[in-house]
């Protein structure tokens, strides 16, 4: 619909006191944000907590919002910062050795791998397991791409990494996922 307001317009309207604008904005992004958090954190209670925290921070900072920043980027940046804080407290990053082991396995000739026709259910299950096994930075980059549809530059903005770094993380993530399907 051509007359539909953009996210940025809705956010500015809410900052001006329009509660309906916030409700519309929330409906648009609640699912995407929740799934991004859920797949990143892999824990329902943590997801709920950070989901609410993200929106609370957005509400508190509504008057500081400037339309120069894309709303989705701003929202996911808030969520990402919360995720980083949570991971820093909870668990260490994946080691280099772990990553290299995955690539060594990927380098093996296709003929060495067993041919399997995986069912639809099995494919989804393996993708889910693969996502859970991804190192945090790679998983975040992958999810920002496939769940939120963001490009390299936006992912770089949100994560605070360089564009090429993001591309590299995505490449590693894809390699790990394929490795999961190869076993």
């Amino acid at each position: 619909m051509g007359s539909e307001k953009t996210d940025e317009e809705l956010m500015l309207a809410y900052a001006g006191g329009d509660l309906l604008a916030f409700e519309m904005l929330y409906r648009r992004h609640r699912g995407t944000l929740y799934r991004f958090l859920m797949r990143t954190l892999r824990h329902r209670a943590d997801t709920d907590e950070l989901f609410q925290d993200t929106w609370s921070r957005l509400i508190a900072a509504r008057e500081r919002y400037r339309p120069e920043a894309k709303f989705t980027t701003w929202l996911l940046q808030i969520a990402h910062n919360l995720i980083v804080d949570r991971f820093r407290r909870q668990r260490p990053q994946a080691s280099e050795e772990e990553t290299e082991a995955v690539f060594r396995k990927l380098d093996a000739p296709e003929s060495d791998e067993p041919e399997r026709a995986l069912t639809e259910f099995e494919q989804r299950r393996r993708l889910q397991l693969a996502l859970e096994d991804l190192p945090e930075e790679q998983r975040v980059a992958f999810l920002l791409r496939v769940e939120s549809g963001l490009g390299l530059d936006e992912i770089a903005t949100i994560t605070g990494a360089g564009r090429e770094t993001v591309k590299s993380r995505l490449r590693y993530a894809l390699a790990r996922i394929r490795a999961r399907f190869a076993t």
């Binding site: 916030f22 699912g31 859920m38 709920d48 996922i177």
Partner: peptide
Amino acid sequence: IGNLYRRLPRYEPPRRLDRAILGEAARA
């Protein structure tokens, strides 16, 4: 892989979170 990802279960936030967040926005 993108197509396969979209076939994964689509989690949704529970209603209680919706109410809490919309309530907080209204109070603000």
